[in-house]
């Protein structure tokens, strides 16, 4: 276990551990492929941004791929996902192809939301991806609302709601958590704790650095673990999803992770040391995943083939985005007629 620089109150009943669950090539290879595709997608976005082809805010998830990939792997296709503005990976993991994601970042007509949302607002009805939201914590009640609808209708769906540890200090999070617990809504609230609320480290934003402890006040089950291993993430989230689906009980899950890049493209990252970033890079979940695949029996040739396939997919998506026509309609979706 790698020491994570944070203090955990004695009252925590969960602990960080590195005992890895067993897996197979069949289970792991698709997840590795997804993580790698997300990584390549983010890298392609960063490149296009630096070329001026993508504008506005661009929040990359590089380093955190195992969390969204593992968590969403625990869902059924009809389950809902609600995410933040750092959501390209979540959308991809939920099943949205790379082409419309990149085209959206490019502001093209073929973009996932027709060039109206951009990087922060990916939505996809077909895969039940309920969107990326730009107001921190404001989407937590919305996710609770989707879960409310599932309970209202008895459709057995579960909603995953992703947010950063920075959201745990705002009212929307508190009220969403409170109502989800009160009404026993089928939701899993996943705090992707990447340890920096933009540029503010945990110890400067939280009196108690264990976000999962908030569940205790609402009588809500909680979990807390590190998010380097995609299978571990999948297993632990699956427990929470199962609980939500079977008993309607929500769970607050905190996953410790680390983003390798700045908060957004305009963030020089002066609030953390190069050594710290290097330390986390050595634990790159992508490398760990590849190593495990070799461990469980995937040969190098198959891995290379998979990696070439991913490369081709993202290159195709970039071409698609580049060649697509510019967005041209900003009037048709203001009011539903």
């Amino acid at each position: 276990m790698v020491a994570i620089p944070m203090k955990t109150p004695e009252t925590a009943r969960v602990e960080l551990h590195d005992e890895l669950p067993s897996t197979t090539v069949e289970e792991l290879a698709p997840l590795y492929r997804q993580m790698l595709a997300i990584r390549r997608l983010e890298e392609a976005s960063a490149k296009a941004y630096s070329q001026g082809k993508i504008g506005g805010f661009l929040h990359l998830i590089i380093g955190q791929e195992a969390v969204c990939t593992g968590a969403i792997a625990a869902l059924r296709p009809d389950d809902y996902v609600v995410a933040t503005y750092r959501e390209h990976g979540h959308a991809y993991a939920k099943g949205v192809p790379a082409r419309p994601i990149l085209a959206e970042l490019y502001g093209k007509k073929t973009g996932l939301v027709r060039g109206l949302g951009g990087s922060m607002h990916l939505f996809d009805k077909a895969t039940n991806f309920l969107g990326g939201y730009g107001i921190v914590g404001g989407h937590v009640p919305i996710a609770a609302g989707a879960a409310f609808a599932s309970k209202y209708r008895g459709d057995g769906r579960v909603t995953l709601c992703f947010f950063g540890e920075g959201a745990s200090t705002i009212g929307g999070f508190a009220e969403g958590l409170s109502l989800a617990a009160l009404w026993k809504l089928p939701i899993v609230l996943i705090c992707e704790n990447n340890q920096y609320s933009m540029g503010t480290p945990l110890y400067r934003s939280l009196a108690v650095e264990d976000v999962s402890l908030r569940a205790l006040a609402h009588g809500m089950p909680r979990d807390r673990f590190d998010g380097d291993d995609v299978i571990k993430v999948k297993r632990r989230i699956a427990e929470a999803v199962e609980r939500a689906r079977e008993t309607g009980e929500p769970t607050l899950v905190e996953v410790i992770t680390y983003r390798f890049r700045g908060h957004s493209m305009s963030d020089p990252g002066l609030y953390r040391t190069k050594d710290e970033v290097e330390e986390w890079r050595r634990r790159d979940p992508l490398n760990r995943c590849r190593a495990r695949l070799v461990e469980v029996g995937m040969d190098e040739a198959a891995l290379t083939a998979l990696e070439d396939d991913v490369k081709a997919e993202i290159e195709d998506a970039v071409r698609f985005a580049e060649d697509s026509p510019a967005a041209d309609d900003y009037l048709s979706y203001v009011e539903k007629v």
Binding site: L130, H139, V140, P141, I142, G145, F148, G172, G176, L179
Partner: peptide, 11 residues
């Protein structure tokens, strides 16, 4: 917000 989320998925 719960109302908004519920409305998004059909209520």
């Amino acid at each position: 917000g719960i109302g908004v989320g519920a409305a998004m998925v059909g209520l």
